[in-house]
Amino acid sequence: MTMPHTPARKKTASPAASLWHWFTPTYFRAVSGRVTPIALVLLLVTLPTGLAYAFFLSPPDYLQGETVRIMYIHVPSAWLALALYGAIAVASGITLTLKLPMAGHFATAASPVGACFTAIALISGSLWGKPTWGTYWVWDARLTSMLVLFFFYLAHSAMTQAFKQQERGQQAASILAIVGALNLPIIKWSVEWWHTLHQPESISFINPSSHIDISMLIPLGLMTVALFSYATIVITARMKLAILQQKWQSLLYQKTRNRS
């Protein structure tokens, strides 16, 4: 009666079936075994070159001087924070509709990583803001929505851990993630409205993408790839962790069943 649950495997070669396999723990192990080395190599190549470009090879900005070097960590981590939230929202939709276990594991694994990237973006952003605008923090729409994103990430990862049954935590967290994804545009827009209401004099936020030179684009791209590879490695490891936690839970569960 107490047999380990094995997902229905069909040895068909259709692309849809192989996609389904990708989303089961058994096949995840094979895929992660291939993905992690590739990401590690990518990280080991792009991180040193990215750092070299960021600190040695790229010139200081004519407007911002040396502080532009903060951009090479700030912007990639902000991009990744947003991209990971999007990925979590998509995975949450899959969790709720198709009930693929790996989608829930992905969301569980990705939210602490996203929280870290958001924290980096916030810290480096405020350190960049001091020399640029003369203050560490302004209640600007972009900053405020980033802060809210950080709280969402914290709530999401707290949610995944808050239940005895991992599955229930993942389902609750996926509802939260979807509600949050729908709310983030509203939050950003409301803060923008509020900002224009209270602070008519706009702060000169120098938009890095508007006048970007190729010498800045190279370190920016390299650092993005490096952080992306790092995220891939850590998320894969944390997905393994989530699978192990599920196994551990069922191990404990079986013990309670075998007692009598």
């Binding site: 709280f151 709530a155 239940f163 609750a172």
Partner: peptide, 15 residues
């Protein structure tokens, strides 16, 4: 959940 009250406020604050 076993998250306690902090979780409630953490979730409802951004919303």
């Amino acid at each position: 959940s076993r998250g306690g009250k902090g979780l409630i406020y953490l979730m409802s604050m951004p919303l």
